[in-house]
């Protein structure tokens, strides 16, 4: 079976031109595959490059070498060489991303923040907003807050808005950067259920989960990045 994500010989070094052209090698010769319905957990100490790898899978960071193929509408797209508009199409239809921190346009109401990805895919705004409201309530964001912009929310609330936004559309690929980091037990369990449901419908999931209990429940494989550290 063809994998949903195929990473081959990926390498990334940051060069800080303004700070004496310091070279920060992050990883080198990283290769792995993730199939539909599978969940791969990226592990390694802080600074091992887990978030850098995850951001590369979203097309947000540009690795220096290797290839990074994502199955998209029957074909495979290499994010390393894809044109900007192709990457944007992938993000709209194929790759969902829950980042560590919510980054939204100011002044947009929570409900619209969450419903936006579905509306962009052509869903009627009323139905997308209704589903968004249901998902937010499942994540214990009370209806009274749906009309407010999330900027003033607490860290945990923002994180749940972020999760809702990433799970409203059934993306074939899901990238999760610490989706449960600032959540209490009850909310953490909801997120675990959401991840398991996504896997059950066939989503390929790559995630960073510092909480070992969460990792054990959602992931079936670990990928240790510290082994791919290049010497500085």
């Amino acid at each position: 079976m063809t994998p949903m994500i195929a990473v081959k010989d990926l390498s990334k070094t940051f060069v800080l031109h303004l700070q004496g052209s310091t070279r920060l090698p992050v990883f080198d010769a990283v290769s792995f595959e993730v199939a539909a319905g599978e969940c791969l957990a990226l592990v390694g100490p802080s600074g091992a490059g887990k978030s850098t790898l995850l951001r590369s899978l979203y097309g947000n960071y540009r690795p220096d070498g290797g290839s990074l193929a994502v199955r998209h509408e029957g074909g495979a797209v290499d994010l390393m060489t894809a044109e900007p508009r192709t990457v944007l199409t992938l993000r709209r239809r194929t790759i969902g991303h829950v980042s560590q921190f919510l980054r939204v346009i100011p002044r947009v109401a929570t409900l619209d923040v969450v419903a936006e990805p579905a509306i962009a895919l052509g869903e009627a705004p009323e139905s997308a907003r209704a589903r968004a409201a249901a998902l937010l309530e499942r994540l214990n964001i009370a209806p009274g807050m749906h009309g407010l912009a999330p900027a003033t929310f607490s860290g945990g609330e923002q994180q749940r808005v972020n999760v809702a936004r990433g799970f409203l559309v059934d993306y074939p690929v899901l990238l999760l950067d610490e989706p449960t980091a600032s959540l209490d037990t009850a909310n953490r369990d909801v997120v675990v259920d959401l991840i398991l449901e996504a896997r059950a419908r066939g989503a390929a999931v790559v995630g960073i989960f510092h909480d070992a209990a969460v990792r054990d429940r959602v992931a079936d494989r670990c990928f240790d990045l510290s082994a791919f550290r290049t010497a500085a």
Binding site: F14, G59, N60, P84, L88
Partner: peptide, 11 residues
């Protein structure tokens, strides 16, 4: 490049 690429990972 893509806006967020250029701003988040400027080369």
């Amino acid at each position: 490049g893509l806006t967020d690429q250029v701003l988040d990972d400027p080369h």
